[in-house]
Every structure is written in structure tokens, then in C-alpha cells.
Design a protein around this nucleic acid. Structure first.
Lengths: 240, 240
DNA sequence: GAATAAATGTGATATTTTACACATTCTTGT
DNA sequence: ACAAGAATGTGTAAAATATCACATTTATTC
């Protein structure tokens, strides 16, 4: 009885963090809960590599992950940032054959990651249409976001790209406190530059300018948009 | 009896073109076949707009479609090219709320497109785990492709981007005849430039150079890689 | 098939962005 | 708290790319 109760609450707690599991019947949740592996990572730890054979899907329970893709010259682009409730490596599902992971995943803020083997997750997907539907929804959303970011990276100049990426980060990682937007994501300028595919020096210059204009502030690798209203005004104006 | 027979063959014919339907039970196929709408389009016709409310999912039966995304300044990027058997606008599935299409779809080679309303397709997905699985697989593949292209657009110089995109197009649209790779896709240089996010002049210059080197040839909007082996050798060498 | 429109090629120039250099400022581990 | 390493800011020079201009070629339409 005691065991049953803690198990249910553990499932429930996990549930609340991962949206795709929200409509699952309790028995499926128990199976997943039994199969899933919890793993702790420190900052800087590599979770998966794009050169490694894909073995499963990952769910962020806490902490943050950057997904990067390298090219032949060794330069890299951050393709996506994941936080609590997000899923990654789902692009390998049902892609039979020895496929590698779609990107390299590195912890940028320590936390717990849940792992489910491809086989286990695929089986659950076949048994639970609700789960499959949630995955399709989630992947669709990712697809939309990616194409928008791709367009901006391809077509905008450094200043505008930077502003737009700041806006995106604020949207996903921002906490607005009295018109100050705290981007709760530890990120160096160096990393920011690989988010939009430009040199760190160029980003540094844009940030200097924004700082001079009193639009942003950086405290311990955390960007703060000091006046969200003003920022949005400048941003909208820039896009016209 | 006669009717039954033609219906089955029509389903079968359609089936063979769209991979996600391949494992569907016959009764589901019949339902889909009944609900699906066939539409013909001429070259240049707009099928969907990114500013229009999403109503359904599209399947390319014949012809070719370019999917573009505009930014606020009106510049556009080709996000993906679709051919026979491909699906588009799937990113809207299960995203309740009045979402617009993820991109604008324009016919670049005339053909037939099948349309299935979001509701009908979502219903089938809930009833057929096999179909849902195929969608997840398809979307995963798209996700992989997109992130790779994004990385290349962000990090490579114009010459290398051009080469890499030619290689991708050859992969998807190429017909190799005696070491000559015919890219069976009508594409102006102007359009090619919006595929990699650079100016048409820059692409024109790269193409001139490639033509001088005897690597490519353009005949009626069709790019031909005149010596596939040589092209691959130059390409691999460039990446080192 | 002639007329009109659209796309292309290329030189010259302007603009943007990167690359390099190096002093300075943060971080981190002990 | 201190030393070592990492990250940052910024001037200058170099390189890449975009823009403009316009002649030329290629499609399209009636």
C-alpha cells in the first residue's frame, strides 16, 4: 500500500513535467515508469553525440541541454535548447538501421535526464495512440520553430538576428519581473554566437551596443532585458 | 464488383506513392480514399499560404512544391522542396487553436496534390497506430534534414553552401545517367539562391565558376552535374 | 514568331562580417 | 583568496558578400 502510493506520486510528479505523457492511461505510465532510467548530469557533461549510434529518447526532468551540430570543419551550431519537460533525440524513432543521434547534447545547467530506449518507447507508441498523437504534436511544433529560426539565420543581419534570438530566448526561458526579463539560461556570448551562426566578436559588439542603449545587462552568464517594453518597441521598429 | 475492383486499384496506386500509408489496413485506406480530395495545380499556383489558417495536410501525388517562409522585410527562404510521395503541412497536426500553415507552398512543377482535412487525418491517426508511427518516422526524418541544412546555411561560405546544396538536390532529385546527374527539378538561379539564403548574384558567380570548371551545366532551368565522380571529388576535397 | 517580360552574367563599388591581436575581466578550483 | 584558465571587449585590417547597374540571354504570351 505504502509502495503503491509512492509509486503513483512518483509517476504523477514525472507526468507533470513531460507534456507528451499527460493523456496516458495509468497502466502505460507505470510501464514507462518502470522502464525509464534516471540519469544525473553535471554542467558540461555530454549526454549524446551526433557521432554515436542512437539508442533511445531523452526527457529533461531538470537542468538544461544544448543540442549542437558540427560540420566537417569542426564549427558548430546550437540547433535547439531544451528545458524541463522537453524531449530530445526523438528524430530517430522508427528510423530503422544504425542511425546516429541527430545532434550532440550537452548539459549547460546540471540536472536530471530520463532515458527510454528506442524499443521501449516505440512499443508504447504503438500501444497508445494518445501518446503517438502527443509526439506528432510535439514534433510539429519543433518543425515550425526550426524553420522560423532557419529563415532568420539565413536572411537577417547580425544585429537583427541577435535581437530576434533574444526575443525567442525570452519567450522560452524568460521570467518577467517588473518589466525586467530574466533569461534563465546560462549562456556565454560565445555560445550565443553559435546560436545564430556568427562570430563571437560580432555578437559581443551588438551586446555592447545594446548595453550602451540600456536594453540589456549580463550577470553571471544570464542575460537580462532590463526594459522589456522598450526592448519590444525597438525590436518591432527594427523589423519594419 | 466492377466498382470494387477499380476502387481497390485506385487505392493501391495512391498507396504506392505515399510511404506513410504503406502499412495501413485496407479498411482505413478506403476511408482515407473516400475523404481525400484530389486537386490539380499549374506551375506557379499557390497551394497554401503561411498567413492562412491551417485546414489540412497535403500529399504530393505528382509535380513538385516549394515551401517558403517570408520574414517581415518580405525576403524569403525555401525551407523544403517536396516531390512525389512527400507530405506537407503536417506540422499543424494536433496543434489546436487557429494556427496558420507553417510555410507557403507553391507549385514549381505542375501536378496533383491530395488534401486531407486536419480532422479526418487526426481521426485516422488516432485509430491507426501504424499510420501514427509512419508519421513520427517521417517527421523525424524531416527534422534531421532541416537541422543539417540549417547548420550548413549558418556556417558555410557561399561556394561551399552551393556545392552542398547541389549535392543534396542530386541526392533527392537526381537521376544518374552515365555519370551525368540530372537534377529533375525546375529551378531558377534566383530560386536556388533563396534555398541557401544568399543573393542571386553570388550564386550566379559560383555557377559561372562551376560551369567554367566543367562541373555543371544548366538546360531549361534544370541543373546537370556533368561529371558526378569529379563533382564528388571536388566536393569532398573542399570539405577537408 | 514577334513582342514583352523575366532571368542571368558580370564589373564596380559599398557594406557587412570575420579574423587577428591583445589587454582586460570574469570563473573556477584548490 | 589566489592563481590559472576561460571568456570578453574592442581597434584595425582583411575578406566575403551584397548592392547597383546594365547589357544580354532566355522564357512566355498573344
Amino acid at each position: 500500500m505504502e509502495n503503491q502510493s509512492t509509486e503513483v506520486s512518483a509517476i504523477h510528479e514525472f507526468l507533470s513535467k513531460v507534456e507528451v505523457f499527460k493523456d496516458l492511461p495509468p497502466q502505460s505510465l507505470q510501464i514507462i515508469d518502470k522502464r525509464i532510467k534516471k540519469m544525473s548530469f553535471n554542467k558540461g557533461d555530454k549526454i549524446i553525440s551526433e557521432y554515436e549510434r542512437a539508442k533511445g529518447v531523452f526527457f529533461v526532468h531538470s537542468g538544461m541541454v544544448k543540442l549542437t551540430k558540427q560540420n566537417e570543419q569542426g564549427n558548430e551550431l546550437i540547433v535547439c535548447m531544451k528545458k524541463k519537460g522537453d524531449i530530445f533525440a526523438e528524430a530517430c524513432l522508427f528510423n530503422y538501421g544504425d542511425l546516429t543521434y541527430p545532434a550532440t547534447g550537452t548539459m549547460i545547467k546540471p540536472g536530471e535526464i530520463y532515458f527510454l530506449s528506442t524499443e521501449d518507447f516505440e512499443q508504447e507508441l504503438l500501444l497508445n495512440p494518445e501518446l503517438a498523437v502527443q509526439m506528432i504534436r510535439y514534433m510539429g511544433e519543433t518543425l515550425r520553430d526550426l524553420t522560423s529560426i532557419m529563415r532568420d539565420i539565413a536572411l537577417l543581419d547580425v544585429y537583427t538576428k541577435t535581437m530576434k534570438m533574444l526575443e525567442r530566448l525570452a519567450e522560452k526561458f524568460g521570467a518577467n519581473r517588473c518589466n525586467r526579463m530574466y533569461i534563465e539560461l546560462p549562456l556565454t556570448i560565445q555560445e550565443f554566437s553559435t546560436l545564430i551562426g556568427t562570430s563571437r566578436e560580432s555578437v559581443s559588439r551588438v551586446f555592447s551596443k545594446l548595453r550602451k542603449e540600456g536594453l540589456i545587462d549580463i550577470k553571471q552568464k544570464h542575460i537580462i532585458i532590463t526594459d522589456w517594453c522598450k526592448f519590444c518597441a525597438v525590436y518591432k521598429n527594427k523589423l519594419m
